[in-house]
Each structure stands twice: as structure tokens, then as C-alpha cells.
Amino acid sequence: MSHTLFIDGLEIPFAPGQTIMDAALAAGIYIPHLCHKPGLTPHGSCKLCTVDVDGRSAAACTLPATAGMKVDNHTPALQEVRKTLVQMLFVEGNHLCPTCSKTGDCTLQALGYHFGMLDGHFPPFYPLREIDASHPDIVLDRDRCVLCELCVRASREQDGKNVFAIGGRGAASHLIVNSPSGKLGDSDLTLDDAAAHICPVGAILPKNHGHEIPIGRRTFDLHSVTEADVAHVGLQKTEHHDE
């Protein structure tokens, strides 16, 4: 049996064990995603990679590709659902782009642009969340955390440190730090860790940096999230794009 599946009618190959997302990225097909990063265990939490597989919704980053699978990806209905998901992510946190030094390099923002999101649609939560500025080199601003667990996975799988985890339940879920005081400054995190640079939003940011590249000249001012994310695997990594 041949190892191919169909994405929007296009036949593409896959290697056994690859997910739909792996196969799509290898073929240069963009499936929107926020919590997925090649090289880390798929998490399947942001649901932005929701695709219709043989008529049923599934997360492309976690579902293994199978031969002959028919996947709908770029359909108006799915784009609308994904836009709504981005809107919910925006209103759930405190995502005030003009105040954030990640603006222009933020994948959540880029996804908003990608889906043509103009407003948050829902009433904003304005949640009260704790900022942790105890680390000399890195700041943790939970206002902007989208609970994607990229930092959790990067710390565990790439840095071998286990600095981060998600604590709490439901709307009270929040990023916690593995240190005696619960503060980032007392943790093992260092500036050269993958976890310090993987945040797709402005929740974990290096200190003492911010405006080397002016607003208007940043990654997603010049590139769409489509180019940047497909380029990461298929072509070459774009400059300034988060690791």
C-alpha cells in the first residue's frame, strides 16, 4: 500500500509514524498551528490545526497519517473556526499588542493577521495573573501565556531541566515554575536554554532586549505566518523568528 494521503485533494507522501502535520510541513503545506513545533512531542492543545479527516474533526499535529486519508485543511468553514479559536485565545489573556515587546514577532498575533481577525468578538476576561521578574535575564509575564506548553516541553525534552509545568485547572490553569520559591530566579533556567526562547507569544522574554528591530520591520510585519512556519521546515529559517 502506498504511503500517501490527500490534503485538500492534493496527494502527498508520508513516512510511517508521521502525523498529518509532519507530512504537510514536509510537503510545504501550511496547516495553522500555535502549540506545535517540529522536534517536540506534539501537544494538541491549541486546536488551531483542526482539520476534517474523512468528515471528522481532528488535530493534525497529533493524528498519525494513514494511507488514503482524505484531509480538508484550507476550507472557509475551518478558517472561520480557527479564527474564533484565535479570538478566544486573545480574550482569555491580556494580549495588549501595543504594550508588548514581542509585537511583530508573536505567532498568536500573526495567526490573527492570517485569519483576518479584526476584533476579539467576545467580552475580554482581563484575568489577574502574576508577573515574575525575579530572574536576572528572563521575564515571565503570565498575562500573555496561552498555555501551549512549548516551554514545558522544550525544558524537559531539549534542556533536560523540567523548569516549567501547567498548574491549576480550567480557567485557573497557569504556568508554574519548578523551584523552591516558585520563582523563575530560583529555577535552573538560563538564557541559553531552548525554553527561554521558544515562547510563541510574549510570556517568556529575554530581559534587556526589545527594540533592536523597530516595529514595522519585524518578522510578521514582513512575512506571513504561512511563509515563516513552512519555511522553518521546508526552506530555511526566517530571521528573527522565534526558535
Binding site: 486573545f90 491580556n94 495588549l96 501595543p98 504594550t99 479584526l118 476584533d119 476579539g120 475580554p124
Partner: peptide
């Protein structure tokens, strides 16, 4: 649209 800077 979302409160912006004053919403801080």
C-alpha cells in the same frame, strides 16, 4: 477594540 493601553 480591546481596551488597549488604558486597560492595563
Amino acid at each position: 477594540i480591546n481596551g488597549g493601553v488604558p486597560a492595563m
